[in-house]
Design a protein around this nucleic acid. Structure first.
Lengths: 154, 154
DNA sequence: ACCAGGTTGTTGACATGTCACCGACTTCAC
DNA sequence: GTGAAGTCGGTGACATGTCAACAACCTGGT
């Protein structure tokens, strides 16, 4: 093996800043959601695609693909949300292995109550501090990194 | 209350991309670390500042400040790493409330074995796909967001 | 029809993170 | 000095995430 490619000081700084934003932004959003609506970020992540689908029903597989979660994590989270009355499980007509997840009335009320404050929070923390040019380049940067990560995992 | 400030389609796309990068990049790094060195990302996060400090010792408070963790999370993680022989706890001479965390020989070997591959991974996934200009602007963007988050939590 | 191999969702064990609280100690105003 | 208030680290209960294994089912070639 050749000499390791250590990070330069500039790179280290950017990398540390990225990890800090990841941590602090996540924390800020968890707290805002919990405080204003009693929902966790995980709850919100599942409720959002459900509320946008016709009849508030999605096959578990589709829901998992929407949020990019593994099946196990999804199943556990659905169980917890089912216990709190936010969603229900139903059999899948097409495929007897499958399972459908349905938004309850309570679940719909919860997401609709939470959405405006959540959107305002994202605006304030992410988009208000950026110029339109920066938003565009930020999107490009994310695309490039995502491409590298996907190439990496294949 | 006035009309909620919903995200525009462009904003939604950038925001979804950010969450995806957060998730996939984290997953890629967890797996690389675990596979190549048997360390978790949490292990690495604590071992790195410890290995850079003189004698491999830091007061728990300092270590917590370095990584930006709460005291409870830090304490639990140190307990787990102590059990695996990566660090030890010692009394703090200056302040009887305090507790010092010391890297063991095994801990130092682990971080030194893990560091080169981890650096290479960050280079490949984050910096290789970006131009120097993009890296600079990415840093600015992170600064702006961090500023907004900090203003928000005070 | 059959069955080998892939898919789907669930479960239990375990690792990790959060929260509320405590006990010991330090700091500071008086 | 002394007491109130703050700081520090740790703990237990619980929420969340990961992993390996499983049962049930679908799909394709034969």
């Amino acid at each position: 093996m050749s000499e390791p490619r250590w990070l330069t000081p500039d790179q280290s700084e950017v990398w540390a800043k990225y990890r800090r934003v990841r941590r602090e932004l996540q924390r800020a959003q968890d707290q805002q959601l919990q405080r204003d609506s009693g929902l966790s970020a995980a709850d919100y992540a599942l409720l959002a695609p459900l509320s946008e689908s016709p009849d508030g029903v999605l096959r578990a597989r589709e829901l998992g693909a929407e949020v990019g979660w593994e099946r196990s994590r999804l199943s556990h989270q659905i169980s917890r949300m089912e216990k709190r009355g936010l969603v229900t499980r139903e059999a899948c007509a097409d495929d007897a292995r499958g399972s459908m997840v349905r938004l309850t009335e309570k679940g719909r009320e919860a997401i609709e109550a939470a959405a405006p404050a959540h959107a305002e929070n994202v605006q304030q923390l992410v988009f208000d501090p950026l110029t339109p040019d920066e938003v565009r380049i930020f999107g490009d940067v994310l695309d490039r990194i995502l491409g590298a990560v996907e190439r990496n995992s294949r």
